[in-house]
Design a protein around this nucleic acid. Structure first.
Lengths: 104, 104
DNA sequence: CCGAAAGTACGACGATCATCGTACCAAACT
DNA sequence: AGTTTGGTACGATGATCGTCGTACTTTCGG
């Protein structure tokens, strides 16, 4: 078994609104998305986030974000780099990500 | 005890993003919001929604929407009329509601 | 080769959630 | 007064969720 079991990413057209909303409705995951967006489309390793949870929980949250289609994950050595799927998200739910990120 | 115990509505400035997102991240509640928005700001009684759940569950969902600040509820006789808090929502989270409603 | 680094897998725990049924209540109508 | 109407209150139940610890795996650097 590899570093990640399946690492499945949903296609852009099949993203579900409730799934995305649920993924964003958690403080830890919202922080991940914010930090990812602050980087301006650049990638970031799971380790490079300041989150008040343990490694296991971290893995859990990244998986929820990936399976809902918010982020893309790619293995790189022992690390996993994350990328915000901004374009796909914007295409499917125009304005949603911007409004969420813009909210104080 | 009146028709509704407290009927508390959060102030527009205290609305929490995660709370609103969580409220919208449910199919039944999303349908309520959609039907409410389709009316163009008009009010609607709890009874006047086509939802695949019982009365108790309906009450529960309307409460979640109210306590998160998405809707306003007002007693009118035996009925409760609901109104989408569009202006307050737009002021606090610009574009959020529109993007959610615009999503297919 | 050995150990450190970065995650994942798995199982567990308590908390929250969506749903329901039954009982209840208040207002309106007869 | 009785009945209907529209909704709430109060559990209860099963599912999902967020969190963690421990064990494991894989890759990379000495």
């Amino acid at each position: 078994m590899g570093l990640v079991r399946s690492l499945h990413h949903p296609a852009a057209e099949t993203l579900e609104l409730t799934g995305v909303l649920h993924a964003l409705a958690d403080p830890v995951r919202l922080e991940i998305v914010r930090e990812l967006a602050a980087g301006g489309g650049c990638e970031r390793r799971c380790n490079a986030f300041s989150l008040p949870v343990t490694k296991s929980t971290r893995t859990h949250h990244f998986r929820v974000l990936r399976e809902s289609g918010v982020i893309e994950q790619r293995a790189e050595g022992t690390a996993v780099v994350n990328r915000l799927r901004r374009d796909e998200l914007d295409a499917r739910f125009p304005g949603l990500l911007d409004s969420v990120l813009g909210a104080g």
